[in-house]
Amino acid sequence: MNLKDQYSQPANFPPTGGTKGGLSVVKIGGNIVDNPSALADFLTDFHRLEGKKVLIHGGGVMATKMAEQLGIETKKVDGRRITDEETLKLVTMVYAGWINKNIVASLQKIGCNAIGLSGADANCIPSVRRNPEPIDFGFVGDPNPDAINTGFISQLIESDITPVFCAITHDENGSLLNTNADTVAYSLATALSKYYRTTLYYCFEKDGVLRDINDEQSLIPSINSKEYAELKSQEIIAGGMIPKLDNSFKAISEGVSEVVILHAKNLLNGKGTILM
């Protein structure tokens, strides 16, 4: 029996009613990860966040700096990294190694019993390597929420162990895959929403979705799907915010209770943009 089968349905899980209470799925980006003081403050708040939780982190800023130091060219298309074989080695060492274990050690220091994982561990997050047409992104994976090993992950959560996932998945054929951390967060939140009342938090360096990217006072407090379509057509929401919001509304349509986009410093007070 493999790990996925062994933990596919834990005993008495899910209980009658299909919910085990609330769960926070929280994603932080490289701008926080790469700032030791900001990261320490965020992890303290994360630990204080009530209830069960899962953390997902990126690390692209550090990976880009490391690539420069090692003479590995960083190639991107529309802001998305092209992951060749050497880049895959690099991002795996940075994401699944230094960043992941540093976060886990920092959480242990403040009393949060955490475990660091990649998508390959316990077959947690299988992915499909992205089609090379029309753009070959290399070793990049797209996870399927239905394939996520929710049984194993839920056993950790129910044992009061906080999973900390990096943005590395695998194809179940021996290859690791670089994966967008926002997409990992969406996939985990969607999969776990079958058993928990799930809130997905995207924490980054802005206070939320802004009408004017250069004006922090232009926060949009809430957006529904119709308003989102209008804001996109007016190009008020553009660039890197589009995939984040696309994932957010997809998560809501697939069972996630709420998505909040906010500055990492506001995790506890919830001030940001609520998507409905």
Rank of each mutant, 00 (worst) to 15 (best):
73 E>P: 00
242 I>S: 12
194 K>P: 02
210 L>N: 04
91 V>L: 08
55 L>W: 02
259 V>D: 09
156 L>F: 05
122 A>G: 15
224 N>C: 05
37 S>R: 14
62 M>E: 03
143 P>C: 06
272 G>W: 00
85 E>R: 15
7 Y>I: 00
225 S>M: 04
92 T>L: 11
219 L>I: 14
40 A>R: 12
129 R>H: 06
242 I>K: 06
77 V>N: 15
220 I>Q: 03
206 K>H: 10
38 A>T: 04
101 K>V: 01
230 E>K: 13
124 C>K: 02
149 N>D: 10
66 M>A: 11
122 A>V: 12
32 I>S: 09
155 Q>E: 13
238 A>M: 11
138 G>S: 07
256 V>D: 02
93 M>F: 09
172 E>N: 14
155 Q>V: 01
248 S>F: 01
137 F>Q: 04
263 H>W: 03
79 G>L: 00
26 V>R: 03
178 N>T: 08
207 D>Q: 10
46 F>N: 02
30 G>R: 07
171 D>I: 01
195 Y>L: 07
97 G>L: 08
259 V>M: 07
176 L>C: 00
106 S>T: 08
48 R>I: 09
73 E>D: 11
120 A>L: 10
18 G>P: 05
157 I>Y: 00
69 Q>F: 09
236 I>T: 15
202 Y>L: 13
69 Q>G: 01
265 K>E: 15
160 D>R: 12
93 M>I: 13
19 T>K: 15
47 H>Q: 13
168 I>Q: 06
189 A>R: 02
273 T>L: 01
130 R>F: 05
85 E>Q: 14
34 D>F: 03
192 L>H: 04
2 N>Y: 07
29 G>N: 04
230 E>L: 11
232 K>E: 07
256 V>E: 05
202 Y>S: 08
232 K>S: 04
235 E>T: 11
266 N>E: 07
108 Q>G: 13
266 N>P: 00
193 S>G: 08
20 K>R: 10
173 N>S: 13
52 K>E: 13
53 K>N: 01
97 G>Q: 07
152 F>Y: 13
205 E>I: 11
166 C>H: 05
176 L>Y: 03
94 V>P: 00
255 G>L: 05
207 D>H: 01
182 D>K: 09
4 K>H: 13
270 G>K: 14
144 N>W: 00
154 S>C: 11
8 S>K: 06
164 V>H: 04
204 F>Q: 02
272 G>P: 01
262 L>C: 14
4 K>G: 10
66 M>T: 11
24 S>H: 13
258 E>T: 15
81 R>A: 05
67 A>C: 10
28 I>R: 01
